[in-house]
Design a protein around this nucleic acid. Structure first.
Lengths: 140, 140
DNA sequence: GTATGTGCAAACTTTTTGCACTTCG
DNA sequence: CGAAGTGCAAAAAGTTTGCACATAC
């Protein structure tokens, strides 16, 4: 995703384009393994200018509440963030607390077809995500 | 689940049967909406005897690492706990941060059949959970 | 110029830890 | 009795908040 694209997304939501917003958004995309607030802060401090921790949280919050990124949580005790790129699922290894995105349209269709036929009473489905738990093998 | 049953589960894992373990385990089952450590502590302090916060965390940790309960996390910032009763999925409403268990064997079979045919390269699947996001309608 | 965003540090919340004491088996 | 578990209080970790200052538009 190019900078101009990010800029557009911010503008489209009525958010001002500050360098902090840009670099946080960029960081999430580049650090694409579901970074924590701390990962993001470090990344920015390393490659770019300085940024306050409080700002990182405030910006993340505004991006989340504007639907530009998502919060992801694992069994560990920190929040992780995820750019919203596409419908994807998560492969998760509890042992290493490592999350990897998993794309599979066949599954998406299988599920959406199933739930189109059989809804869930008392619940309005917005989207479905798989959390596939297990272990990563060598080649990762 | 009866007390005797809980007792057995503890013994089976080589854990000692302390009143704290029993009441924490019981609390998770009774407070069956994925209670937080704090919910559990309050519940125990109300209905039964006193318990230290540190103990609650220590006991939860031992139950989790012995596979007797599970940690569940939502987008909010506290950890929740879940008795392991059966294969189930979660209906989740981000707005209210409310989680409800969802049982559906048809889906389980659909998925396990699918992944039996088409594995995921580099990943060994242990189990699959659906997180179905959306909104609860009135009758909840 | 003004509403919005940022930096900073202090406060808050949740979870962890260490150690003396207690209890299960 | 001894190993395992608990209470307590202090500390760590993660996140939020308030307010003065800065900046995007």
């Amino acid at each position: 995703m190019k900078l101009a694209e990010i800029r557009n997304k911010l503008v489209a939501k009525g958010l001002r384009v500050s360098p902090q917003r840009l670099s946080i958004f960029e960081a999430i995309i580049k650090l694409n393994n579901h970074p924590t607030a701390d990962d993001i802060a470090e990344f920015i401090k390393k490659d770019h200018s300085n940024i306050a921790t409080g700002t990182v949280y405030k910006v993340l919050e505004s991006l989340v509440s504007n639907g530009l990124i998502k919060k992801v949580k694992t069994e560990r005790d920190v929040m992780r963030y995820d750019a919203i790129l596409d419908i994807h699922h998560h492969l998760y290894c509890a042992e290493s607390d490592f999350i990897k995105d998993y794309y599979n349209n066949e599954i998406n269709e299988l599920l959406s077809e199933y739930f189109k036929k059989n809804g869930i009473p008392g619940f309005e489905i917005e989207d479905i995500k798989l959390q596939i738990n297990g272990k990563f093998l060598q080649e990762d």
